[in-house]
């Protein structure tokens, strides 16, 4: 059985790995599309490749809440739900504003980094309140 520290380390390493993978594939895909203007089949493939690391982060997160102790599990699940709520709020608010005002466009795929920014923010707020 893993210790609490090992569980935490696995989580940190996993999240960093998939976040770096996501960023690397995203920037490489954008560069490739701008540079070579590939056909739609290649673009779909690149879009899929960019999206796959998100599944990895979710698996890492699920593994974390499975192996973490009950206190940590309750904390991170609460933060995750709050971050999801704030992300939904931002997406709905911004989407509505885009449709009915002259506000600038935020690409839909930015939802993922926005979620993790919200997650970090919610975690920070929780720590300050503790």
């Amino acid at each position: 059985m893993k210790t609490a520290k090992q569980v935490q380390n696995d989580y940190t390493k996993g999240i960093i790995l998939y976040a770096l993978l996501y960023a690397a594939i995203l920037f490489a895909s954008i560069y490739a599309i701008n540079k070579f203007n590939p056909n739609n089949f290649v673009k779909i493939f690149l879009a899929l490749m960019t999206s796959l690391p998100i599944g990895g982060t979710i698996l890492v997160f699920l593994n974390y809440i499975k192996n973490a102790d009950e206190f940590i599990r309750a904390q991170v699940v609460e933060v995750f739900v709050k971050a999801t709520g704030v992300t939904f709020f931002i997406a709905t608010f911004w989407g509505f504003m885009e449709n009915y005002t002259a506000i600038s466009n935020i690409d839909f795929y930015m939802t993922y980094p926005i979620f993790w920014a919200c997650f970090g923010l919610m975690q920070g707020i929780k720590k300050v309140r503790a």
Partner: peptide, 26 residues
């Protein structure tokens, strides 16, 4: 104590300060 119970130090702090009510198992 956390190591003996297979929980984090944060969990022990929360238990000692009454911020976490343990499950029946814990």
């Amino acid at each position: 104590l956390g190591d003996k119970l297979s929980v984090s130090r944060q969990a022990i702090i929360a238990l000692e300060t009454g911020k976490h009510i343990p499950s029946l198992d814990l």
